[in-house]
Design a protein around this nucleic acid. Structure first.
Lengths: 342, 342
DNA sequence: GATTGCAATGGCAACGCTGTCATTACCGGT
DNA sequence: ACCGGTAATGACAGCGTTGCCATTGCAATC
């Protein structure tokens, strides 16, 4: 009498290759070949097996498959937030890039917390992804090391202001901020106010702010007033902070916002307060969201192409699945958009 | 001379439990126990092993782990779109619900295409997820069968208008539409216009439309004019279509939109065209987006709680990981929000 | 000193599939 | 009848981990 020692537990009556193979009277190998459409199989055999697959409702177990083939077909994606619309937009680009390939993305969110990012990356790497696409280039030392040692492709997207581990896809936020400042100076604005993110977590917002400051400094100017917040950047927040800064410093001639959301809020405040835009006050955003274009008056802003960033990040990996010797930077650029608000 | 037949391929010099075990002079079992913090291990041993783990940069292979333990710790999520802000909001709720558990979500997007949904579900199930959270209750027959047979928990979120496979979390879109119509009738509106989605893909938008029609019919009314589109529902589209319907049928007294985005676009048109809202024309949205609340005048709308829907969907699964005998419906409700536009 | 109890560790098959051969079946040419 | 070649299929180890025991070591108890 056999001992039947191991794994007496459930197994939930799952259907396996062996089940299909046995009932279709072929070997496991043949079923496997058919399921992934690779190798030579006679049409008759294929039909016989596929009929059995349908009958049993067999779904291949990709976990086992990945282990056996040492290839998970997974692409890890790490983003700081889902509430900031720009990240879903990037995910769309990633999705578009992945469409038609046999790869799957696994998305993790860090809430702008570098420690959480570390944990998230650790968990992600445990799934043996073929690549990791991660927002930003600033990580904890441990995260950096893990990514480096993983040997997989690491595409850091959004910003190209810092040297990447492997490849960076995005734009220079410092340069964008600077360009915006110089553009506004050139249009004649002199008394600048800043409304937006002033925390330490969203590093790209900080870089844009830094760029703005640099640009102003170059023109011998600087911010006359600032209204900083450190939470989410929303339309409501922008409205509120604009109201505050206008009350505090009434003689500004232009407001630069850390994001379009906030700038839209700013416009709403002006609409309510009877402030004429841009005659009394100019408003300038950042990102070029769809929302800004549909406003009663199009928002002046810096356009970045989030969809393209996501798409290019994926393409870079698909084109060359193994890590290059030299770090690489892909600049997707930005564009000053002259709307009707500044 | 040994033959060395199999798997001469790469292996990429990955570090495995055995490597750690050998160098730390313990067994594989002990390393495994330590890595997943389960079972008895002496502190000294744990430290010795962890030191080696750090030194080697060992990252456990969860693919192998999942295969061995027959538990992937994955939760599959299927949504139709990322460009419609409501889905990222639901993902946030899902993320919040999953935080602190050792489970990972895997997100797939169907682009409102039921055939793509079928493919996506097939791919998802191949990863042996512990649960599948899927938007909506209308699927292809094959998708339905796959989900049923998978044996895992299937939580259908967003709508509860159709009988679920296992559990549905969300609200009745028909009821919400009807309630909105009756509310507006009660406020004295009589000449209704509909602006929004009129395609066949977004089934929930259709149900809301149906609900609106039912509500109006109950009051002996109906839409005087409609402006349908079948693409994305955006602010720009709302603006454009509102402009069109106002030109075509100037004497409407209220417009109901298929979503807040469109309603915001409608308001922008009115702002530009000098139409007073709500005096000349009432505007009524759907969803209760943050954007609507921050408008110069708060948008009247039906509030739904997307974050809660996502969170509740996850909680339902965490609370009871095995499929219940009876289908279950969790109604997260909706609320008419009386803003300043209708 | 022998026995018991328990904490700590080890051994090994199994998870479901795929990669790498080996083998079989069949065909046409001589 | 024999051979060589190719199409089709089969056999089986191995992927890296975990579940299920078995075993060891050591202190407490008799």
């Amino acid at each position: 009498m056999a001992k039947q020692r191991y794994r007496l537990t459930d197994r939930k009556s799952k259907v396996t290759v062996s089940d299909v193979a046995r009932l279709a009277e072929v070997s496991d190998s043949t079923v496997s070949r058919i399921m992934r459409g690779q190798g030579l199989v006679a049409d008759a055999t294929r039909e016989k097996v596929m009929a059995m697959v349908k009958a049993l409702g067999y779904v291949p177990n990709r976990i086992a498959g990945s282990l056996a083939s040492l290839d998970s077909r997974l692409v890890g994606v790490v983003i700081p937030s889902l509430s900031n619309i720009v990240f879903p937009e990037i995910l769309q680009g990633i999705n578009a890039g992945l469409a038609g390939t046999n790869r799957q993305s696994v998305i993790s969110v860090t809430d702008y917390d570098l420690d959480k990012e570390e944990e998230v990356v650790r968990n992600l790497l445990a799934w043996q992804p073929a690549a990791v696409l991660i927002a930003g280039s600033i990580h904890t030392f441990a995260t950096q090391k893990m990514l480096e040692n993983s040997g997989v492709r690491v595409i850091e997207f959004m910003e190209i202001d810092h040297p990447p581990i492997d490849t960076a896809v995005g734009l220079s936020h410092v340069a964008a901020g600077k360009a915006a400042a110089l553009h506004l100076v050139q249009r004649g604005y002199r008394r600048f106010g800043y409304v937006g993110y002033g925390g330490t977590l969203d590093l790209r917002a900080r870089m844009r702010y830094q760029g703005l400051c640099e640009g102003l400094a170059e023109a011998g100017l600087g911010f006359v007033a600032e209204s900083m917040s450190d939470g989410q950047t929303t339309v409501a927040k922008g409205k509120e902070q604009t109201s505050e800064i206008c009350a505090r410093v009434p003689d500004l001639d232009v407001l630069t916002f850390s994001s379009d959301d906030m700038a839209v809020g700013g416009l709403f405040h002006c609409l309510n307060a009877g402030i004429r835009v841009p005659e009394d006050l100019g408003l300038f955003g950042f990102n070029g969201l769809e929302l800004g274009r549909a406003l009663p008056q199009p928002l002046s802003t810096v356009r970045t192409n989030r969809f393209e960033i996501g798409k290019r990040a994926v393409e870079e990996f698909l084109l060359n699945p193994t890590r290059p010797d030299q770090p690489k930077i892909i600049d997707t650029g930005f564009e000053i958009f002259e709307g009707a608000t500044a």
